[in-house]
Design a protein around this nucleic acid. Structure first.
Lengths: 167, 167
DNA sequence: TTGAACTTTCAGTAATTATTGAAAGATAAA
DNA sequence: TTTATCTTTCAATAATTACTGAAAGTTCAA
């Protein structure tokens, strides 16, 4: 396959994957573009490559920076801003996991924890089932949480190494 | 907190979480409802509880069945269909992981594998960077894949137990 | 200061995704 | 069969989400 075609396909694939996992497709495409760029890209570069507006490019870049997946890079003697992506995939995975944990899992966890307190003494079948399920869910989400924490601290080889060894 | 309020909050929380992870919010709400139901529910029950149309209820139930998270249950002497959810959370997690792997991860993996073949001999910096990144991504996604496979086969306590022990 | 070069914002609009509800389809008891 | 009961489909519509582009904001060299 020719590079230009492969590049387009990678951008499409990464964008699609993002979309399926609740991440704005364009944001994932901008990320894809920066992941394979051998040097920092300007907003103009990104607008042109992906054929998107300045506003859209700006918004998605800002969001990628919020996720700590991309950072601004200043070139001395140039007023234009450039952007670079974190290129270590393990680090990328960690940051995504950390961010999603913070934004989505933790709030859900807190909510479930409160729900566990519901009228624990009731004899009603619905209520009993509810309490039981909240217990199960809290327990599960706690374990997930700890797993993500482990991942955040660990090195890639250690993490997968240990995991795969015990399979 | 009173049961009725807690129930509504659980449905909202589960629905929101689903939405954030690329799963139709209503589908997640139907799932939530079935998770805490002490007995099978009919389409009517679900329509009423969530205030949704028959078509919507039917569609989302079918999809939950495709995901193997819900099954139909027939009550002898009753023509109406009832639905029950898998209640073991570890099993639920396994099925979701398995399904998402099959639907989303595997196709992405295959696509990346092809992209790795791109003009490997080029001296162009862009192409070199691209090949490098495709290699990293393939390698990472392979490890993820194996981790999910391990999860699919393992028992909850063994899986998390081993994981948490090594933390 | 001024103004050229660049970035950010956001109201309006477009695109996508989800929902409704009525009609068609299926099933089984009479 | 026929008919009553229940399920499925899908075109129309609503709701949500994403995008555009022009105007406002910022920064800095002259």
């Amino acid at each position: 396959m020719k590079y230009k075609e492969a590049k387009q396909q990678f951008i499409q694939t990464w964008g699609k994957l993002g979309g399926e996992w609740g991440i704005n497709r364009t944001m994932a495409q901008v990320h894809a573009l920066l992941l394979i760029a051998p040097k920092p890209l300007s907003t103009e570069d990104i607008m042109q490559e992906l054929q998107i507006s300045r506003g859209n490019a700006n918004m998605n870049l800002r969001e990628l920076i919020n996720w700590a997946l991309v950072s601004k890079e200043l070139v001395p003697g140039d007023r234009m801003e450039y952007f670079v992506a974190e290129k270590n995939i393990w680090e990328v995975a960690r940051r995504i996991a950390g961010e999603r944990k913070k934004r989505e899992i933790e709030p859900a966890k807190q909510a479930l924890l409160k729900l566990k307190e519901t009228e624990a003494d009731s004899k009603n079948a619905e209520v009993k089932e509810f309490i039981k399920m909240m217990g199960q869910l809290s327990n599960f989400i706690n374990k997930m949480d700890k797993t993500v924490d482990a991942m955040m601290k660990a090195e890639e080889n250690w993490f997968f190494g240990t995991l795969i060894k015990i399979m």
